[in-house]
Amino acid sequence: MAGPYFIKIQEFLPMKHTLSVLVENEPGALSRITGLFSGRGFNIESLCVAPTLDHTMSHLTLVTSGDEYIIEQIIKQLNRLVDVYKVVDVSEGEFVEREMALIKVKAEDETRAEVLRMCDIFRCKVVDVSPKTYTIEVTGPESKLKAVMELLKPIGIKEITRTGTIAIQREKKTL
């Protein structure tokens, strides 16, 4: 027998969930949320925050993973925070999600045209040009970003920044 604490790591099939969180626009509110995730051992895959039309509230989109019990705990724990107004698992229903990436890609002589062709196919925008690079803005669901990155990789990605996912429920549903 080993030590006194036998902590069994639960095996589960992690499912991705996209949570929309409305939170008071107060100092420390974001830290409470991220602290909750680290303190209780939950995952954050991406996190995106900005004020809403009502400037006293922020909208936070959080992508996390876990089985149904973990997701239930995450939602309950978030709701327990005094600053959190509302939590919705948007991935439960119909929703639209988008992410943006800025990709600085090598574009020299023979590859310059190829990069532009790729932009065209994926409806990306070139937002900055230098003699040896293009910086491309790509928007879409995460799968599209992944596809673009995969195709640009062989050409040579110099730098990349991503916003993290934002999401909204379809049709009449509002937070």
Binding site: P27, G28, G35, L36, V82
Partner: peptide, 16 residues
């Protein structure tokens, strides 16, 4: 102290 006690208080405030 607000940062330190964030995980062990129900809520906390730094009055500015």
């Amino acid at each position: 102290i607000v940062g330190i006690t964030r995980p062990c208080t129900k809520h906390n405030y730094l009055v500015k």
